[in-house]
Design a protein around this nucleic acid. Structure first.
Lengths: 144, 144
DNA sequence: TGTGATAATGATAACCATTTTCATTACTGT
DNA sequence: ACAGTAATGAAAATGGTTATCATTATCACA
């Protein structure tokens, strides 16, 4: 539970950009890494407050943006609600399968779909840099 | 340029739901159908104002929601900006290939990807109802 | 080790797209 | 024509997120 690698990624990024270290960022990083849930800024905010009640929500937003910039996390926009953030380091690329009834979602990946996307983009003259695939349906549990 | 079919779809929907007809909705529908662009509510608002300067932005929002409910349009969330709306009636299903440099996008579709999604969802116990696939890259023009 | 330059913070105001409220107006079936 | 109710427009409210700004913390270097 030390997350040395992630810390190093952040530290290196901070150093390279000429930014400065801060204890708040470390608190936020730890809270973020300790859960595998896809949190919103608000949710992470209330988690971090348990350790550091003085922290401000603006710092959480700023820090989450920083995490995305240094490749530790990724924004997840599933609908019109608040943006969620998911871990990126040490996690395979994946897409999402969302249940329209209970709102739950699972992570999935299909190498063939990935490959076909690449092919499709190339056909259109695009150099593919990423994609977002969200599938919506009714999950097993909700069908019963 | 009469869009009788689309008008009928809306009229039927309105009738079935016990709603009432309104001239504003018709103005908004016409403005919406007359462009193939993917407009935001604000953009459509300024288009409609040319015909009917008295119209309110709230009505545009309400009406766009109605269009989505009756299957005439679909929300398009490409990023953090305002939601865009695209025609649904008379338009094949398609996904989007967005250029990260110029912001332009094209519509694409790959039946095999569609099929693989279906298969993937089924494997996870989901009944697929829809999906959203956005691919990001650099377009031909921007590479030069 | 102190110091100056500057990044980070927290509180709060501002922002912006969207939704709600509410009084008024317009449809619609009878 | 009338009653019932949906639709409208203006404005306020909402909610997530970002900007502002005075203060505090960090860091390279003297």
């Amino acid at each position: 539970m030390a997350f040395e690698v992630e810390q190093k990624i952040l530290d290196d990024f901070v150093k390279n950009k000429g930014l400065k270290h801060s204890s708040q960022r470390k608190d936020i990083l730890m809270a973020f890494l300790r859960t595998e849930k896809h949190l919103t800024a608000e949710e992470l905010y209330s988690l971090v407050r348990k350790k550091n009640p003085a922290i401000g929500i603006a710092t959480v937003y700023r820090t989450l943006k920083l995490f995305c910039d240094c490749g530790l996390s990724r924004e997840l926009r599933l609908g019109s609600e608040a943006v969620r953030y998911e871990h990126l380091y040490g996690h395979e690329h994946h897409d999402h399968l969302v249940c329209l009834t209970c709102g739950d979602f699972i992570e999935v990946v299909d190498p063939e779909i990935e490959h076909l996307q690449e092919k499709l983009a190339r056909k259109e003259g695009f150099t593919l840099q990423g994609h977002k695939l969200i599938m919506y349906g009714i999950c097993q549990g909700c069908k019963e």
